[in-house]
Design a binder for these strands. Structure first.
Lengths: 348, 348
DNA sequence: ATGAAAGCGCTAACAA
DNA sequence: TTGTTAGCGCTTTCAT
């Protein structure tokens, strides 16, 4: 009934637990015959070592913790799929938690994972996280951490990100070349890395085309579109500007769909009156009305690379420095929300 | 540096570990003064009991395992949010795994969770699962399990489902009343509970309106739309029928968007030529082209109720029988994909 | 080549 | 009221 233990095997075979352990672990000094006996019996009884006991013993768990803002978002669920596929093959389990963009939740999840002795952490920062002590502390204690997507400048470790600057630059250039001049940028809180990078790409594009940057065209949404009112308020202000925007460049799934909903409600024609480009991995972009032009991140691949780096860190602890920052290409997929005809362009 | 243990406290305060344990645990026979001392010191040193040691000791973990087909699906991610919100408040941690609809993965995940001593399991069956032994076995050993959404007939325990029959019935009636007669039903594998229930609702509606059931109008997609070709092949066959359908009733997110994509590719007008209603929780139904009529499940609530039942089971083990099957209402949201004007109807 | 014993952190039965 | 001891399952010195 209850799971069989090493002790049971020892008793059955009239051996000591240490001998059994050695046999199972394929250890050095062990009689081949004894080993065979133990192996066979263990196999027959379907013995499985108790991972909890192992964790208690050496503070390891062959599992990694993942903390992301939220699961109900295509970018993040693709990220997870990438993470899982690799981790699974390398024999690690993945424990997923959502921070719901709350600092407190992020800290609580982190503590839990650490107390459960995960071997490493994969983090995409909550938008409300400004204090990084909970991670810095762990890093100093030697816990491997890799950040992805939303990464902190202040912490030195491996990081995997999309080339946000470039994706944003291309999207903006595309809008400009399509004749837009008043391009609004609706984005996430300013203290997220993705926000500043995307903002920078946006600004650079304007600059390259000699369009003056207008602060009033940029809206930072603390809740990233999760609070409908916030999003609507931002849209409201933009649309009521003396010189309203002729295009929207939105920085996330929620922000994008939120904006589209508002435009639709107001019966504003897309793209005739206002064009829209979203930085989003939403799966049904093609089916939207109109089909949505999007900057798509290689989410799956980002997840894969991040775990690879993490597991490398776990299995071959580095002394110091020499951390990688991998920046992956995004793709700009052109659709009707910003142009008439459909074209796919791989951004380099 | 390293986490502080009960032993450290004992040493520092010149007590035995058991006394410290008792003080912390607020146990009976304990000198208030001693207790205060211990508490204070523990607080000061930021003592946290090691959950692994606790799990090893009493084979409990204050955590519950969740296995669902996939995360990248709004229905399931909402389910998870419901689960987490309640579990969190009741002091349980939630460990999420995806089966990716594979039987092997489901078994592997189950074994892992059990070996990690989760206190209970919340399961939505993989579409390729036909053998239920891995769950039956655990139930016999007394591990609390609650099923939700995709539930097995053969296992007696708490179950939480949407009223699939009713939702499906209403959707079909709606299509019939809108003048459709050749209603195709594109659905998941037949051995899933949701499939048979939805099929039954569909049939009943036809029957009530004296429309003969036509087997050739029903397509079962083994991969539930995850394999594009399968979906397209099904559509192909349906559209090439001597008497092709004038409406589609699709049973999941993927199936729905897949169908829409095919119709769009073929330039078939929705709803003029073919109407479509999806059994889906997709978040952007309103923004699709055309806006999609949908049967929406109360996913969040289903998750909440399921954990509640599970935790009740964990904390107050029942001897036998007397299990609940909760069936929650769905909502039929009418939009342009099946009608001209927009109306919301709460299905009873 | 094998066994005895200690220890990972904690709790609980038993002594004192 | 407090301390001692054993044990959860496993690995790993240290003896033998």
């Amino acid at each position: 009934m209850e799971a069989i233990t090493i002790k049971d095997i020892a008793k059955a075979l009239n051996l000591s637990t240490s001998t059994v352990s050695r046999a199972l672990r394929n250890s050095y000094e062990i009689n081949p015959e004894t080993k065979r006996l133990v192996m066979e019996y263990a196999e027959k009884m379907n013995y499985r070592p108790n991972p909890i006991a192992l964790s208690l013993k050496d503070s390891k768990s062959k599992s990694i913790g993942v903390i992301i803002p939220e699961i109900a978002n295509h970018f993040f669920s693709q990220l997870i799929n990438g993470i899982e596929s690799i981790a699974y093959n390398l024999g690690y389990h993945v424990v997923i938690f959502q921070s719901h963009d709350s600092y407190e939740r992020e800290v609580a999840n982190t503590n839990y994972l650490v107390s459960r002795k995960v071997d490493g952490l994969l983090i995409s920062l909550a938008s409300l996280t400004t204090n990084l002590f909970h991670f810095q502390d762990l890093m100093e204690k030697g816990l491997p951490i890799v950040f992805l997507d939303r990464v902190p400048k202040e912490i030195e470790t491996h990081k995997v990100v999309a080339d946000n600057f470039d994706g944003s630059y291309r999207a903006t250039v595309h809008l400009i070349e399509s004749g837009r001049r008043r391009i609004a940028h609706v984005t996430s809180p300013i203290y997220l890395s993705i926000t500043t990078e995307r903002l920078a790409g946006y600004k650079k594009a304007l600059e390259d085309f000699d369009i003056p940057f207008d602060e009033s065209l940029v809206k930072y949404c603390i809740y990233g579109g999760k609070v409908v009112e916030e999003n609507e308020a931002a849209m409201e202000e933009l649309l009521n500007l003396p010189e309203p925007p002729d295009a929207f460049f939105t920085a996330s799934d929620r922000l994008t769909t939120g904006c589209m909903a508002v435009l639709q409600k107001r019966h504003i024609k897309i793209p005739e009156e206002i064009a829209i480009v979203g930085f989003t991995n939403i799966s049904v972009a093609e089916l939207l009305n109109p089909p949505l032009t999007a900057v798509v991140q290689p989410a799956m691949e980002m997840g894969q690379q991040a775990v690879e780096l993490l597991i490398r860190l776990i299995e071959h602890p580095q002394k110091t420095g020499d951390y990688e920052i991998r920046s992956l290409q995004t793709s700009l997929i052109l659709r009707d929300s910003s142009v008439g005809s459909k074209v796919n362009i791989k951004v380099s």
